[in-house]
Design a protein around this nucleic acid. Structure first.
Lengths: 199, 199
DNA sequence: CGGATATTTGACGAATCTCAATAGGCGTGG
DNA sequence: CCACGCCTATTGAGATTCGTCAAATATCCG
């Protein structure tokens, strides 16, 4: 096990490569995504401090992973992990808990992608970043947006343009304030929650 | 642990109820879904012979489950499961494997919902049913469709009408043959795979 | 400072949704 | 056995949301 430091916008591993390592995000932010043969991309999650990465029991990675910013990772060789599991059953329970949590998040994202409008998706996304801010001990109405508009679009199943237009719309309705591309204030959390409609 | 028999179109459990049982589908078919407050629904998966159901490590179910047809389930009380896990670490590995598999399926579904066209979604769906048929020892080009058009729509993030129109389109292009609402032949698997584009 | 890249904005078009009508299946009861 | 009614699926026409293409603006970084 070793700690590694990763520069912004670096590939960490690629889908269908042999899954040699498992990671834990210590600091920074990571996106994970799958590609279609013609180049369309779906980002299936963003990972932050404390999240597990590459947690598969297949022989190959099921998705690609890339850093959004300078990021610190703990790396375990996977073959060591397997023997470790036999020694520490407690760890296995933690992994099962993590997988269960990820699964619940994946199902929420399916609801978002299958049934929510662009406005609802963007509101849900901003509230997700608000929860991340909270987890990091920041005020929940002041968010950092470490990903590009393209990343947001590929996460929400929208185009860059729709993401941008919806942000502008929220801004002009006084729901948010954009400090710059990467930083925003949520001026009306209640209204955003209303829009997001997440059961 | 007991085996229970469930009639078609019966609720098995409801989202946010205390998760008292874990199930294994022995026979039949089950849909699992989440609702938005205004009644929109997203079906997050269909389960068949051998699939685990209600596999959560939260105290409440994360989704509702309903039978599509007459279905047989194995039921475990969850509190017994937890002590069982301590005795049989092997079981925990199987559950972790199942969770990992479900997670991979969830990510594929996110790609479908976020980035695929109606045609691509329907082709992917028909091929999924083809794999189910194979798993059941049936020819892979003769599928049973145990769910309604509404279910298909809520699974693929489409409306009933779009599902129906796309089926008609496939039929008129000689890709499929509809025996009745619930049964079809896939006349050109290669073409459907081409359309589905699943990386 | 300046070129490259990312974001915003605008005009238009297309895929899918909505609403409405029709057709088909299936069970019940006459 | 047929007729009726109910429910689901299909088909059609028009509306709408979001995507596409294009241009302008802003931002980043050497």
């Amino acid at each position: 096990m070793s700690t590694i430091l990763i520069k912004p916008h670096r590939l960490i591993f690629v889908e269908s490569e042999p899954a040699e390592n498992v990671f834990n995000v210590t600091d920074g932010a990571v996106k994970i995504y799958k590609m279609l043969p013609d180049g369309r991309r779906q980002i299936t999650g963003f990972l932050f401090h404390g999240d597990f990465l590459g947690l598969v029991f297949n022989e190959t990675y099921a998705y690609s992973a890339e850093s959004l910013m300078q990021t610190k990772l703990c790396r375990f060789p996977r073959h060591k992990l397997e023997s470790l599991l036999n020694e520490l059953p407690k760890l296995e329970q933690r992994l099962l808990g993590a997988a269960s949590h990820e699964l619940a998040a994946a199902q929420d994202q399916m609801v978002l992608l299958g049934r929510k409008s662009a406005r609802e998706r963007m509101a849900s996304f901003l509230l997700m970043l608000s929860k991340v801010a909270e987890r990091h001990g920041q005020p929940d109405n002041s968010i950092v947006i470490p990903m590009s508009r393209a990343d947001i679009g590929d996460y929400l199943g929208l185009t860059i343009e729709t993401v941008s237009r919806t942000m502008t719309q929220f801004k002009s309705q006084g729901l948010i304030e954009l400090l710059d591309d990467k930083q925003a204030k949520l001026l009306n959390l209640a209204a955003l929650q209303e829009i997001a409609m997440s059961a």
